[in-house]
Amino acid sequence: MSDRHTEELADPARRARGMGGSVRRWWRQSDQFDWFTVYLRDRGLQRQWRLATFGFTAVLAALPIVLLGSPVGPDHTLTRAVAVTSAATGAGASVLWLRRWPTRNQSMIFNAVCSLSIAAMCLAMSNPYNGLMGCTLFAAVGGFLAYFHALSHMLVNLLVAMLCSAITAARLLGESGDVSLTVAALLTVVALNVGVPFGIESLVHTLRTDLRNSDRDPLTGLLDRRGFYHAVHELAVNRPDGICLNVTMLDLDDFKKVNDTHGHAAGDDVLVNVAVVLRHTCRADAVLCRLGGEEFVIADTDGPAKHAATVERLRREIVTVPFGVTASFGTCTVTADPGSARDHPRFVDRLIEVADAAMYRAKRAGGDQIHHRHLD
């Protein structure tokens, strides 16, 4: 068999593996609440989103009360009580957005309350057709989850929507015997609950990828300052209690001599090589950034011993970069849970300030050294 024929046979297998890898990455992607929250905050859009979410939720919460006066609405004491409870919980959930921007957990509770309230309202309808068509409202919850949360959360909402739709469709078919009407209504519900959330999820995933690629230094390919702030904010908020968060500043010693002696092209070559050292030495999920000039910053969640070993390895590896440059390092470690401090806009600034001060102490001591600081 020729090599060309072998390659042609192997191509579909490679494509299948690549597709399988893409599906796995899509399934495993993390919750999007933190980065999208920062995205909206940086653009001054949080207030508009809060008011829009409050208004939309409040209107939906009013629907069960309005339908109490309709002959197709709840017509028994129990179903009327369910409708009133559904309206009250929905109204309570809407107030959350009127007061302030919620935390991730509060947002998850909000979505769960909305999903269960919609299910209760649909099942309480005396007319099963109205109940089935009311299941289209799950698409709004799914769309919100697509913006702010993970794929698994969307699928749970979709499961609730499909279960509620199946119950109301069975009621409609049993009472009317109209197969065509039932199938048409059910297809409408399924199309909206699949199309809207997954369409938004695809758009937001693409937006996130583009934003991350745009927040990069063109010379080294590392994150720039804005990208670093966003990435570390996610890292800090997602960090479990008791796990270390480390920020390491490094500044190349006497870098100006390289530019003055060998030219700016040589200086750029040194910066690119330092970026390669950072990528090869730091853990895969570390946040790597070139702040500007010859300053770099790293964030990771290693324990104290492993972090110290990594920084020492970095110090030794940078000495091997062309033109014999060295670097001064300053590290800042947070080990105790800072609670609400990590949600503060200046939390990342404070970590960088402490690491920067430690780095300048290393530089004043002669360079090619590491100074550690711990932030309570």
Rank of each mutant, 00 (worst) to 15 (best):
V319E: 14
R15E: 05
T53C: 06
A161Y: 01
E8S: 13
G18K: 09
I318Q: 05
L78D: 12
G339A: 14
A336C: 14
L158C: 02
T79D: 07
A286R: 01
L98F: 11
H307F: 09
A119W: 03
G267P: 07
P128K: 06
H149S: 10
H76F: 07
H233P: 08
D268H: 08
R17A: 11
T335A: 12
S328V: 11
P102M: 03
R41D: 12
G267C: 07
V196M: 04
I200H: 01
L78H: 14
D3S: 13
T261L: 05
P240W: 12
D42A: 15
E294H: 02
T57H: 06
E294V: 03
V297K: 00
D253T: 04
K363M: 05
R100M: 07
E201V: 04
D356K: 07
V354D: 05
T188V: 10
G367L: 05
A170Y: 11
Y129E: 11
P71K: 09
F56D: 06
A275L: 03
A275F: 00
H344W: 03
R99L: 15
A336H: 15
T220Y: 02
S115P: 01
D42T: 13
T331G: 12
A62P: 00
C135A: 10
D285F: 10
L40T: 08
G242S: 04
G92M: 09
S152H: 05
G324E: 15
S115D: 01
H280Y: 11
A355G: 05
R315K: 03
F148D: 01
L132N: 02
R216W: 08
H307W: 04
T85F: 10
V38H: 07
P240G: 08
L159H: 01
S86D: 14
H372W: 07
F198T: 06
D337C: 09
E175M: 12
S94I: 08
L288C: 10
D343W: 14
G92D: 00
V183T: 07
V277W: 10
L245K: 00
L137E: 04
V113I: 08
L172H: 08
T168S: 09
A58F: 02
W27A: 10
L68V: 12
C114M: 15
R313D: 11
A309W: 01
D337K: 09
D343H: 14
A139H: 06
G174Y: 13
L207N: 04
R43S: 15
V204D: 05
V59R: 03
E8G: 02
S22Q: 12
R24Q: 03
D349F: 02
P345N: 03
G293E: 04
L155T: 09
G339K: 12
S107I: 00
H371C: 09
G131F: 10
F138G: 03
V270T: 06
R171M: 05
A357K: 01
E8M: 14
A10E: 14
T310F: 13
F296Y: 12
D42L: 15
R364M: 06
R4M: 10
A52Y: 14
R41A: 14
T103M: 02
C164A: 15
V274G: 02
L123T: 04
C289G: 06
G143H: 04
P128H: 07
